[in-house]
Design a protein around this nucleic acid. Structure first.
Lengths: 205, 205, 205, 205
DNA sequence: AATGAATGAGTCTTCATTCAT
DNA sequence: CATGAATGAAGACTCATTCAT
């Protein structure tokens, strides 16, 4: 009755312990093939305990997603890059994303397939991940176009293309693409150059 | 006695009827939440009949994938574009892909989530869809670099980035992105310009 | 309309063809694990045809049993032995049974397990196989006791014991007993001696 | 925390409760016609609970067999009879078997038909029931022959004949033979006399 | 008479969820 | 709070049987 703060911490710890186990098992077998029994034993607890912390198996996915969103510290690191050179900004964005993905890939593998199929998760995922970033990027691109640092382009579609590139690369990694596996560290620069310079050869004379 | 050819046709028709229904239901509810009973009733047949044409529920996914691959006529239309201007080629590729996706999106929504989670399907999907195109593109880009029509770049990663862009855009559409929904027709040009010209402003003086 | 006799023969031939296939498949997999589809293909006909000759799958078992009973020619050969020496009679009985079993073992394997579990078949089997012989034997033993050729014994139980010995030996063979497999030809004499002379050593002085 | 031993007992009790129900239903309808649903309701539990204690329906048969084997206390009681008079030994063996059968008949009815058809069970059954006893009997008969208490005979076949007699009598009882039903109590003596003395009349002069 | 596609009831088995201890 | 036994609804798949051709 009196230990509110400590209790809260314990609860959080237990929730995280469960979510870690769930993410691992989901990533390994997919949402549906993962049984609560396996999640429980992977977390070293009993099945019943899961239901003391989460109302339903689906809530585990929600929990994973929420934690993933909190883990996303896009803003802090990037806000400063907003001011500098455009190409540097893109490298920074891409590197930030690529690193984040590195971390969160297992979780993404755990949730993405189910997100694509479950409207509730769909909406939440879009809001927490896609829109937050697309808004930021759209504003950035818009501003830089005005400043003449970026060519005039269809801003929403261009931003979607860039975001899509990430999501697609994650999917390709999940599918086991070997070129990506081996060259993952070079991805940020390659993408930044591709997006900023394009494939067109330098016109010099 | 006279039915071999006719029978074959009937069998194909029935198979397609079943796969159509399966694709619809899978797209709607995902692979696991789709019950064979629902697929059957959506196809207007009985559950048992499904199993006269497919050994397992998973084979329905495989069948959908195979049919999708056959539907892919990438080659014919594009082979001619291989010769022309680079930017035109990209527009052609993108338009071809975007159109194909338009058609196959429902099927992709049906299979992609499960593909990401099932190693067998993963392999097959990669072979039938990803690798066929990546090989083609890598060769093209390589050749054009030699000809000076494309800047020297990390070919495999660049090609993955372009492919990833498509897959990612499909995923975003599946997630219900509205900018993509409304602007879908402009996607090919936007992508082609992005990839070929980059975001860098024209340097003119 | 006019070909009654020929038609009858064709029907009999087809029925036998089906029963042969059924007996084979039943013996191999047991009644329940044998599917009508497999029986049909093993007979080289279609599933539907089976049902032109037999109303139900169970009727195949009945058909096999009936045919087996007809095949039993116990009487003819043995009737003559009825008159001779007792020990010779037993050898004759046993040899007759052992030979019959040799032939019919596959069919017995096909039907016995199901017979034990299905009351209808049980009754029919008992009547056709067990009782016909037990009656014969009981009369014989009874008569010979009166003649002083056989010790006074509990006739019904003794006859059951002898019959049981056969059934049990078949079961043991079906279970794969190797001693029986290899020594099968000696069984008639061993049994006759056992039953007639017993294990008690000859009292001689 | 204190429940390991108690829990083990509860588990055993539940397992036995399930096996009892399964044996009853198997004996009544045979293995295949018995549904897990019926077994469950006959045990007064839910279908799912069965699978908390047995992995598959077949394991129920195995469980029944194992329990039956444990129930077999052949050895203890008989070991003493090994020393005494031969005819007494046979009476003891037969009585022991007949009593055991009385108890286990329902279980035998449950498993025997399926055992005859399933190679895995076949092997296990042979090892647990047939071979253990045949080995014992062969050694006994062999020894007694040397001592002159038993006539020289083909030991393996003779032993099989005796064992077969039992199995066959069980089968006949399962088939509903009435002479056996009513005279069951006399069976041991009749068998012992038959096997030891034979049918041959005493030669006296 | 023969076919074999269609049927759909029935089966075993899984698993998220509950609740008494 | 933790446990894990019990639940029972739901699902994929099988197969004897029917019937239009």
């Amino acid at each position: 009755m009196s230990k509110d703060p400590i209790r809260q911490q314990l609860i959080q710890a237990r929730r995280n312990q469960i979510l870690d186990a769930a993410a691992t098992v989901f990533a390994e077998k997919g949402f549906h093939r993962a049984s609560t029994k396996e999640i429980a034993s992977s977390a070293g607890i009993s099945e019943g305990t899961i239901y003391n912390y989460f109302a339903t198996k689906s809530d585990l996915l929600l929990g994973i997603m929420t934690r993933l969103a909190e883990l996303e510290s896009l803003d802090e690191e990037l806000m400063e890059a907003l001011q500098g050179d455009v190409q540097d900004f893109f490298v920074a964005v891409f590197r930030n994303r690529v690193d984040g993905i590195q971390q969160g890939q297992e979780m993404l593998k755990a949730i993405l397939p189910e997100v694509m199929v479950n409207p509730d998760l769909s909406r939440q995922f879009t809001q927490q991940f896609v829109q937050r970033i697309s808004t930021l990027l759209e504003q950035y691109v818009q501003a830089r176009i005005k400043m003449g640092h970026i060519r005039p382009v269809n801003v929403p579609l261009t931003v979607r293309a860039v975001q899509g590139m990430f999501i697609g690369l994650i999917v390709l990694r999940i599918l086991g693409d070997e070129s990506l596996e081996s060259g993952w560290d070079d991805v940020p620069e390659v993408l930044a150059t591709l997006v900023f310079d394009g494939l067109k050869p330098e016109k010099e004379d």
